[in-house]
């Protein structure tokens, strides 16, 4: 058997556009509210009353021919053996060449202190309510729901000055768990696995369905594929 190539198939027919994936991703990966490793495109077409609406979930495509990896001057953005496009913040200089190179706008740049909300710096009602520093002091974490398991392969939160993006939840894969968005999807619209393994569910689904990718003309060879109509 050849090497592993992780891939995600999103069944738009099953997807109901609820955004549970987007939120669960933030929970799992300690992603700032203004970023969206897991994101979506929304399309409304037609005139009343003949209106169609589509919701297309997006995330890093973990392209086999990844422009972000090519553009990175320090190899901070790199490919893993299993096909994941991974980022190493310790090498990142924050040049944003990857953001420029990515045709899908899925790479985010920490231009502020991550997870810090100015709104929450002081207590709302003195002595009666808390504040973000208050919660940090009490719980010893940046936000109450901070997930320390993310630290296995990335800084728990990414420092100011570096980029960040979806990692296919590599830290969960290492434990035999699916990416957080896959688990969170109540419609079971996301199928994840090794497309090089003919017996994997993704391979079977891909064999049966006409799969499409975003911006195929860019030649990026995405590993996030779409089947069905929303």
């Amino acid at each position: 058997m050849g090497k592993v190539q992780y891939c995600m198939v999103i069944d738009l027919e099953a997807c109901v556009g609820c955004s549970a994936c987007d939120i669960a991703c933030k929970v799992e990966n300690n992603v700032p509210a203004s970023f969206a490793w897991s994101n979506h495109i929304i399309e409304t077409v037609g005139k009343f009353p003949d209106v169609k609406y589509r919701y297309i979930p997006t995330l890093c495509n973990h392209c086999s021919n990844a422009p972000c990896v090519a553009a990175c001057p320090t190899t901070a953005m790199h490919k893993l053996d299993n096909g994941i496009t991974m980022h190493d913040p310790s090498k990142c200089i924050g040049c944003a060449a990857c953001r420029i190179a990515c045709p899908y706008d899925v790479i985010y740049f920490n231009d502020k202190e991550p997870l810090v909300r100015e709104e929450f710096l002081e207590p709302l009602i003195p002595e009666c309510t808390s504040s973000q520093p208050g919660i940090q002091k009490k719980l010893g974490v940046p936000v109450g729901y901070y997930n320390p398991e993310r630290e296995a392969t990335l800084p728990g939160i990414r420092p100011r000055g570096v980029v960040e993006k979806c990692t296919f939840c590599d830290h969960r894969l290492a434990k035999g768990l699916p990416p957080a968005c896959v688990e969170a999807c109540p419609a079971n619209a996301r199928i994840f696995g090794d497309r090089n393994d003919p017996n994997s569910e993704v391979s079977k689904v891909l064999a049966k369905n006409h799969a499409r990718v975003l911006k195929p003309e860019k030649g990026t060879e995405p590993n996030v594929l779409y089947i069905g109509e929303f």
């Binding site: 203004s34 970023f35 969206a36 994101n39 979506h40 495109i41 929304i42 399309e43 409304t44 077409v45 037609g46 005139k47 997006t58 706008d105 899925v106 985010y108 740049f109 231009d111």
Partner: peptide, 12 residues
Amino acid sequence: MNPEIIYNTYPG
């Protein structure tokens, strides 16, 4: 306007 497509990415 039509089709209306929304893709909110980081604005910076």
